[in-house]
């Protein structure tokens, strides 16, 4: 049994965006804090710390999850993907480019979480329709855009398994 005592720091190792990373964390350190403060991966944002706003959403082992509701010690050995993984050296990926095209972001604070949810959904349901996209987006709060550009951006890339772009 892995038993980690309170108040002491324990080494955590996992894969972040395809690279092995490690850092020390007390059991109570939130994954969102670990990503940002220990690993310097500031792309994952924190908006509520109670699982309601969705800003901190990341992918973990092929699921979109709230990083504020996980402790760093819980992701030992797992594979995590964050917003920093999306763009290629050549530029933005399709979803990101569509977000820019449709003005799907303003302040950009909620955007990384939304990108991660939509990325996960696209892996699971590449042909998701607007109703399903809105259903999944309802796990995110965006106060700037009214969601219109986000939905349009998603519709641009969903249902595109044969590469119309």
């Amino acid at each position: 049994m892995r038993y980690l005592e309170a108040g002491k720091r324990h080494t955590v190792r996992f894969t972040l965006n395809g690279r092995a990373v490690e850092g020390d964390a007390e059991p109570r350190l939130l994954l969102s804090d670990f990503l940002r403060q220990t690993l310097g991966a500031f792309g994952t944002h924190v908006g509520c710390e109670h699982g309601s706003c969705g800003a901190c959403t990341i992918q973990m082992d092929g699921k979109a999850v709230r990083s504020c509701l996980l402790y760093a010690v819980q992701v030992e050995g797992k594979a995590l993907t964050t917003v920093e993984n999306l763009a290629t050296p050549d530029g933005l990926n399709e979803l990101q480019a569509a977000m820019q095209k449709h003005h799907g972001l303003q302040c950009g604070f909620c955007t990384p979480g939304i990108l991660m949810s939509l990325t996960q959904l696209r892996e699971e349901e590449p042909n998701a329709d607007e109703a399903r996209i809105r259903d999944v987006l309802s796990g995110h709060i965006c106060r700037c855009t009214g969601y219109d550009g986000i939905v349009k951006a998603a519709l641009d890339v969903f249902g595109d398994v044969f590469g119309k772009n």
Partner: peptide, 19 residues
């Protein structure tokens, strides 16, 4: 015109206060 801010923000590289 598309926003010049977006490529930074969409990469998660926008520098917000806590960053």
């Amino acid at each position: 015109m598309p926003r010049v801010e977006d490529p930074t923000l969409l990469r998660g590289l926008g520098r917000f206060a806590d960053d």
